[in-house]
Measured scan of single mutants.
Amino acid sequence: MQFKLIINGKTLKGEITLEAVDAAEAEKKFKQYANDNGIDGEWTYDDATKTFTVTE
């Protein structure tokens, strides 16, 4: 399945997509990506659109 991450950071904004088996795997990958890029914020997930959002 394809999942999307919307980044609303203080210095980094944008979207990325990835393939994952389920939402838990996608969340783990997205949070690792955010951590690697210094993004720390409030996370939400919309199951209907398979979209994660992180807002700093």
Rank of each mutant, 00 (worst) to 15 (best):
V54T: 13
L12K: 05
K31P: 00
D22K: 07
G38D: 10
D22F: 07
A34H: 01
K29W: 08
I6Y: 08
E56N: 02
L5Q: 00
N35L: 13
I16P: 01
D22W: 08
D36L: 09
L18P: 01
N37L: 11
T44E: 15
D36F: 08
I6T: 02
D47Y: 09
W43F: 03
E15C: 03
Q2Y: 10
D46Y: 11
I7T: 05
K13R: 08
A48Y: 10
E19Q: 10
I39R: 01
I7Q: 02
T51M: 09
L12W: 15
L12Y: 14
N37Y: 13
G9P: 05
D46P: 00
I16D: 08
K31S: 04
F3A: 00
I39G: 02
I7G: 03
D46E: 13
N37G: 10
Y33V: 15
T51N: 06
T49S: 10
K50I: 13
K28W: 09
V54F: 06
V21N: 10
N35K: 11
G38W: 07
K28H: 13
G38C: 05
K29L: 07
F3H: 06
V54R: 00
M1F: 07
E25H: 15
N37V: 08
A26Y: 00
I39M: 08
I16C: 03
Q32E: 12
G14N: 06
E15G: 03
K4N: 13
T55W: 04
I7F: 11
G9I: 13
Y45D: 01
T17L: 13
G41N: 01
V54C: 03
A23F: 06
T44Y: 15
E15R: 03
L12C: 03
D40N: 09
K29V: 10
D22G: 09
L5A: 07
L18M: 09
F52S: 01
K13Q: 12
K4W: 06
T53M: 15
D47G: 11
F3E: 00
F3Y: 11
K50P: 01
Y45A: 02
F3M: 02
W43D: 00
G41H: 01
A24W: 04
L5C: 04
D22M: 06
M1T: 11
A20R: 09
A26H: 00
D47P: 15
K31A: 04
L12E: 05
M1G: 14
Q32M: 12
I6R: 09
V54Y: 01
T53L: 12
T49L: 10
K29G: 06
L18C: 04
D40C: 03
E42A: 08
D40P: 07
W43P: 01
K13P: 09
A34S: 07
T49R: 13
G38P: 02
V21G: 06
L5R: 00
D46I: 13
D46N: 13
Q2H: 15
E56D: 04
V21E: 13
N8P: 04
E27K: 05
L5T: 01
N8F: 15
A48M: 05
K4C: 03
E56V: 07
A23Q: 07
L5I: 01
K28A: 14
T17N: 12
T11K: 09
I6D: 03
E19D: 02
V54K: 00
E25V: 07
E25R: 08
N37D: 07
T51E: 12
N8R: 15
G41R: 01
N35A: 12
Q32I: 10
A24N: 11
A26G: 09
K4I: 15
Y33N: 03
K50C: 03
M1V: 09
D46F: 13
L18H: 14
F52W: 09
T51L: 08
K28T: 09
K4E: 08
M1A: 13
E15F: 03
Y33S: 05
G14L: 14
Q2T: 13
A24Y: 14
K50D: 10
I7W: 09
A34V: 08
T49A: 14
L18Y: 08
E15S: 05
D47W: 14
A48Q: 07
G41S: 01
G9W: 15
Q2E: 11
F30R: 00
F30H: 02
A20Y: 05
A26R: 00
K50Q: 11
T17G: 07
A24C: 03
D40R: 07
G14Q: 06
Q2I: 04
I16S: 08
T55Y: 04
V21R: 10
K28S: 12
A48E: 10
K29Y: 08
K13E: 09
D47S: 12
T11I: 14
F3N: 00
L12P: 01
K10F: 06
F52M: 04
W43E: 00
A26F: 00
D47E: 15
L18V: 12
A26W: 00
T44G: 04
I16L: 10
T17W: 06
T53G: 12
M1Y: 08
L12T: 13
A48S: 10
Q32F: 13
Q32V: 12
I16G: 04
K4Q: 06
D22Y: 15
F30L: 10
Q32Y: 07
I6A: 03
T49F: 09
Y45G: 01
A20K: 03
T11V: 10
M1W: 05
Q32P: 02
K10R: 04
D46H: 06
A24G: 15
V54P: 01
L12A: 06
F3P: 00
N35T: 05
D47F: 03
G38N: 12
T53F: 02
G41P: 02
Q2A: 05
T55C: 02
E19S: 15
K4M: 07
A23W: 14
I39D: 01
E56R: 01
N35H: 15
F52H: 08
F3L: 01
E56M: 11
A23L: 05
K29S: 10
T55Q: 04
K29P: 03
N35W: 06
E42W: 08
L18D: 06
F30C: 03
E42N: 13
V21T: 10
L18A: 13
E42Q: 11
N8D: 14
W43S: 01
